[in-house]
């Protein structure tokens, strides 16, 4: 029986899906050691404790909540100090973070503070004897390493959208925890968080991603991508580097070797050739659809379902058909 820690990420006072995924992964690890406790840490502006319930429902026995005005934006210094101190205090055998933009900033700081290693961007976890083992894609997803973590605690950051949140009701007792030092005195200060409105699904969370490439010809044609995403209702928009380089979309939408790595249930590649640097970011998607006028385009080698043809002919028909299919279902 070992105690596990999970960091519950939030943005704008709302839990992110990756918070439930981290708790789910920690629950799985605790159960694999014979059923230890899961302690979650939730930091945020005053009022954030109201969000603790969902963490209990997904397997947290205790939720340590730290509320402070200086946590309304991300505050990595103060958050890392608190996470490290709590990991020690509860005697955690393992700690789970999300391999999100925030989590990948936070987890290495905590690891260095505690003097233990970190397995990043983990897609599978297991307990083997005394060690926690983690599978981690390397070399732009072309190789998968299995790592044994012998440090105590063993820290991991889990890839978003891989550890599906699983209900596992526990007591979810809320305990107030004081910050370590003054969170208002952090040297690095996040002045502002822009975009990512509450209703908008982001790339790491969305079960469906509609991604556009240079085949769309111009920035304004990205409305076809947005319309298809809206027709699905649960989709986010992605792009290739050709598109972000030309400024049609922000760099935060870029998927690939130097962009985001995503693993949605459905990835629709529209007017994308399928360069290896792009594939590096999406090859682990469960189902891949490709639309391209060139039947030799490398994306078709990967696609489960390919349609050869002109995006400007196919997209309006596809948007209408997805709308109709969804209308039927509701």
């Amino acid at each position: 029986m070992a105690t596990m820690f999970a960091f519950a990420e939030q943005r704008d006072g709302e839990l992110r899906k990756v918070a439930l995924e981290a708790v789910t992964a920690a629950r799985t690890l605790a159960d694999a050691t014979g059923g230890g406790e899961v302690h979650a840490l939730l930091v945020g502006a005053p009022g954030i404790s109201g969000k603790a319930t969902a963490l209990g429902a997904h397997g947290a026995d205790v939720i340590h909540v730290c509320e402070h005005a200086a946590f309304s934006n991300a505050n990595p210094e103060a958050t890392a100090a608190l996470a490290a101190s709590l990991l020690k205090q509860i005697g955690a055998r393992g700690g789970v973070f999300a391999a999100s933009a925030q989590g990948r900033d936070l987890a290495p700081r905590v690891a260095a503070k505690l003097g233990v290693s970190l397995a990043s961007d983990v897609i599978e976890l297991s307990v083997v004897g005394d060690a926690i083992q983690a599978r981690h894609p390397t070399h732009t997803g072309k190789v998968i390493a299995t790592l044994a973590l012998t440090g105590n605690p063993a820290l991991v950051a889990v890839r978003p959208n891989v550890f599906a949140p699983a209900p596992s009701p526990r007591a979810g007792r809320v305990e107030t925890v004081a910050p370590v030092g003054d969170p208002g005195a952090s040297r690095v200060v996040v002045r502002e968080t822009r975009g990512g409105g509450k209703a908008k699904l982001d790339l790491s969370e969305a079960p469906v991603i509609i991604s556009g490439g240079r085949g769309l010809k111009a920035a304004e044609n990205f409305k076809l991508i947005e319309e298809l995403a809206a027709a699905f209702g649960n989709a986010a928009v992605g792009a290739t580097r050709a598109v972000t380089d030309d400024g049609w979309r922000p760099h935060s939408d870029q998927i690939g070797q130097t962009g985001r790595v995503v693993s949605p249930e459905l990835y629709v590649a529209v007017g994308i050739s399928g360069a290896i640097q792009h594939l590096a970011g999406m090859r682990t998607s469960r189902t891949i659809v490709a639309i391209n006028k060139d039947k030799e385009a490398p994306i078709f080698k990967l696609a489960d379902y390919g349609i050869v043809g002109d995006v400007f002919e196919i997209m309006p028909a596809l948007i209408a058909a997805v709308r109709a299919a969804r209308a039927h279902k509701v």
Binding site: R11, A101, V190, R191, T193, G195, D202, S252, R260
Partner: peptide, 9 residues
């Protein structure tokens, strides 16, 4: 850059 958002630091 965050997922579909950004921070000024």
């Amino acid at each position: 850059e965050l997922e579909s958002a950004s921070e000024i630091v």
